[in-house]
Write a protein that binds this DNA or RNA. Sequence first.
DNA 1: CCAAAGTTTCCTGCTT
DNA 2: GAAGCAGGAAACTTTG
Length: 309
Amino acid sequence: MSISPFTTLESPLTSSWSPTNSYPDVATWMSGYSNRLWPRDPKPQLWSKFQVWEWLQQVMDINQIDASSVPFQNFDMDGHQLCGLSYQDFIHAAGSAGPVLFHSITELKWSGQCHVELGHLELKPELDFSCSFSEVSYPPADLDVYGPSIPPIAPVASPTPSSPGEECTSYTIQQDIKRSLSRQVKKHNPRGIHLWEFIRDILLNPERNPGLIKWEDRAEGVFRFLKSDAVAQLWGKKKNNISMTYEKLSRAMRYYYKREILERVDGRRLVYKFGRNARGWRESDMTRKRAPRRRRRHIFQFGSRLEEP
DNA sequence: CCAAAGTTTCCTGCTT
DNA sequence: GAAGCAGGAAACTTTG
């Protein structure tokens, strides 16, 4: 059995997520993935690349931002590099989600241990924040690992302009966050992450994939379930549905054929292939995103977005 | 309240 | 015979 590097991470839910705990390695993995454990190192400057990704995913999950709208590969950096990014860098790297991410990391840098949940932001009533960000889609038991809610953005947000004369006031950041979230949350997204995105994220995160799914043909997007029941349990945990089975999960997968998110792979059990409407799984997507367009202070390229199909 | 999207659940029949 | 696949049908949850 492969032991995930997150064995040391503890979660109050790890021992209770499944009545039988039939997949301890999965449970361990889950403790970091969907139980929303914040990276334990309170100083973001000390985060590993993986912790940066974890932070990224959690900020987007919590604020119900469509994960596919932010190129994770633009954040292929450790915490030190992340903390060096300016407000404009975040805009370039994450587009409309940039203000939210910038605010989150700014809070973490200053507070050392808290993270931002937009539902707790003290926004002016006249801003007409119609979306309910306090309504997170995770069990309340998960929330206590986050620590206290964050104070208002204004006193601590202190963006670093990328160039002289580039002013970023807390007011404009707050406006950006408002606009960003208005755009993001309007997208119809019934229950958070989609199944195919969940599968894709497992495949793209080998560090956290303890032999659940593997690529059969990386270039063609062909993959195979190694532990179908474990993946189903994981998906069920994600959706707060303990009765999820591979049979049900596979039915949902088959619905993707019609939408060309998946293509049929005949004659091979547990094998699927990403279709033309699946985004963000190609290696070429990632390498293209990293190619520098112009000289910047940091080694990563900002500004490109994942292609829409 | 309604419609739509995206599953979830159940089912029958077929294949490996 | 078990496990998986295929797809119809209905129900369900969430969002706009």
